[in-house]
């Protein structure tokens, strides 16, 4: 006798992605990779600070004129901002919902405590929260200039130097960049697994890439405050 054990009606792609833990992880992986690409570009741009105020400020200005004359002033930049905002929101909301779910799936703890997994793995959630707070401060500091001591529009070089001339500016930035490194280290490898790219053969390459990216990003970003502190940039 024929059995109707299942129907073949499937939810839409969006519903499938958002409705399942695996799908939500996919959303996190893709949004994370978008942010990672942005971070790499951002870090490379930051290095221009070593070539002086003129070049750095010109680069910052170019970000606004990108795509001209096809696009209007700042359109491209707003485009990037919209994509990034979407990535941040999706990444954050998915992470929040999945974390809530994960915590609920393990309602009682073991009486015998022991340290588990690597530092990078264990700090994904706290690292994410630190990064979210940092991004808010970072935007207020160097984009809207609300909390910047120099706060000169169109003079990002001077604004950056002002930020890194305060101890708290340095402290906040260094902690955040360390968090970026750790987050990218597990996040990149993890995204590869989620997207099904990982397998036993590729594992070493993926892990090496994750470590390389994490190290390059942290070192690249940290070089700026260090340069300001040591007077190389000023």
């Amino acid at each position: 006798m024929a059995l109707a054990t299942r129907t073949d009606r499937r939810p839409s792609l969006t519903r499938s992605l958002w409705g399942s833990t695996v799908g939500k992880k996919t959303v996190m992986a893709v949004s994370g990779l978008i942010m990672l690409m942005y971070l790499v570009a951002h870090m490379l741009g930051n290095l221009k600070i070593f070539f002086g105020s003129g070049e750095f400020n010109a680069y910052a200005h170019w970000l606004r004129t990108m795509g001209e004359p096809l696009l209007h002033y700042e359109w491209a930049l707003w485009g990037v901002r919209v994509v990034l905002l979407a990535a941040v929101v999706l990444h954050g909301v998915a992470a929040y919902q999945l974390s809530r779910r994960d915590i609920a799936a393990r309602p009682s703890k073991y009486a015998h405590k022991r340290r588990r997994t690597s530092y990078a793995t264990r700090t994904m959630r706290w690292g994410g929260i630190i990064l979210a707070l940092f991004i808010a401060w970072h935007l207020l500091d160097l984009t809207t200039l609300t909390v910047n001591e120099n706060a000169q529009p169109g003079r990002p070089y001077e604004n950056v130097v002002a930020t890194f001339s305060t101890w708290y500016g340095n402290a906040v930035y260094l902690v955040a960049m360390l968090a970026v490194g750790l987050h990218v280290r597990h996040g990149f490898w993890s995204a590869a697994q989620t997207l099904g790219v990982g397998n036993a053969r590729r594992d070493r390459i993926l892990k090496a890439t994750a470590n390389g990216l994490a190290l390059a990003l942290t070192a690249g970003f940290v070089s700026v405050p260090v340069a300001v502190m040591t007077g190389v940039v000023g």
């Binding site: 833990t21 992880k25 099904g196 790219v197 990982g198 397998n199």
Partner: peptide, 26 residues
């Protein structure tokens, strides 16, 4: 819960089901 790829599962598995199984299922 969801998977955060901590790898604890594969370490505990008495039959050695490897962690990359998860990526393959994804």
């Amino acid at each position: 819960g969801g998977c955060t790829l901590t790898g604890e599962c594969a370490t505990a598995c008495p039959k050695g089901i490897p962690l990359p199984s998860i990526a393959a299922m994804n």
